[in-house]
Write a protein that binds this DNA or RNA. Structure first.
Length: 266
DNA sequence: AAGTGCTGCAACCGCAATCGA
DNA sequence: ATCGATTGCGGTTGCAGCACT
């Protein structure tokens, strides 16, 4: 889909691609290690979390999503996630509700904020410990050509790990690498697991389908009522972002140290 | 079947940063 | 220090495919 080839360029062999275009096409499309297809549930949540932290810094986000390009993440955000947040009444730029109804945190929100603060402190401590570690950008051609997979793993993933511990209010992701081949979807609030979810092969809706035949489905249905996908999405988003992370895109708040950590990423 | 509108996404554009002579 | 070339990045465009009428 999308633009295949320029109309005015390729009647013969001569593609009107400059070096810049070729490079871009390699990075965004031809590179052999690019993961194509639908974004997994895990990837969707990672993008949302990263967007809350980083704003429209797509390249930095791509560093946390193995085998996904910044362009792909940007497109996915603009065409899927942004619309979904708008539909849920959440401002996709500020990650806050478009109404001001929840400006005063509730009791449970305070708990979430405490959890976030704990995660933040943990991340800060880790930052100090690892301050001499080198952070490399896997997208950079030099790094791409010379680094092995363990080297490509971005250190800032640990921030996400900490955050995902907070997100666990509704469901949680595994604590291993975000690019792990198999994920385990968990429902800690009701003590359920859905182990057939496979990262990279199913999208958000598919990952729900994978538990439909489970004998745990009934319990899930009792917990997640009609419109569950949106509610699920919304709740996860809320817990993970605007109430637990009292931050703005400009970073002018208590999370500066985390922003420093993020800013240290490529 | 034909026309219209919408969607997804590869590609383009312009600017800033970096590199190297 | 200067300057042209290259690279990196985020915003935007425009086309193919699809759904709908």
């Amino acid at each position: 889909m999308g633009r295949r080839l320029p109309l005015n360029g390729h009647k013969e062999v001569g593609l009107k691609r400059c070096g810049k275009s070729c490079r871009l096409r390699w990075i965004n499309y031809l590179r052999p290690d690019i993961k194509r297809g639908k974004f997994s549930l895990q990837e969707e949540h990672t993008i949302i979390q990263l967007h809350a932290l980083l704003g429209n810094r797509w390249s930095a986000m791509a560093a946390h999503l193995p085998k996904r390009t910044d362009n792909e993440i940007k497109n996915y955000w603009n065409t899927h996630l942004k619309k979904r947040l708008i539909k849920l009444g959440v401002d996709p730029m500020t990650h806050k509700p478009r109404t001001d109804a929840s400006s005063i945190p509730s009791g449970s929100n305070l708990t979430h904020m405490a959890q976030w603060e704990s995660a933040r402190l943990e991340a800060e401590a880790r930052l100090v410990r690892d301050s001499k570690q080198v952070v490399l950008n896997p997208i950079h051609p030099k790094n791409y050509l010379t680094l092995n997979h363990s080297q490509l793993r971005p250190r800032c993933l640990d921030v996400l790990k900490a955050w995902q511990g907070v997100v666990a209010g509704m469901f949680a992701f595994p604590t291993q690498d975000l690019g792990s081949p198999t994920s385990t979807l968990r429902f800690p609030a009701i003590g359920l697991n859905a182990t057939s979810y496979t990262d990279g092969e199913m999208g958000f809706d598919d990952s729900l389908k994978c538990i439909e035949n489970s004998n745990q489905m009934k319990e899930i249905e009792e917990t997640i009522t009609d419109g569950c996908i949106d509610e699920w999405f919304e709740d996860s988003f809320r817990v993970g972002n605007y109430e637990n992370v009292p931050m703005a895109v400009d970073g002018s708040n208590c999370c500066d140290s985390v922003f420093d950590l993020v800013n240290s990423s490529p």
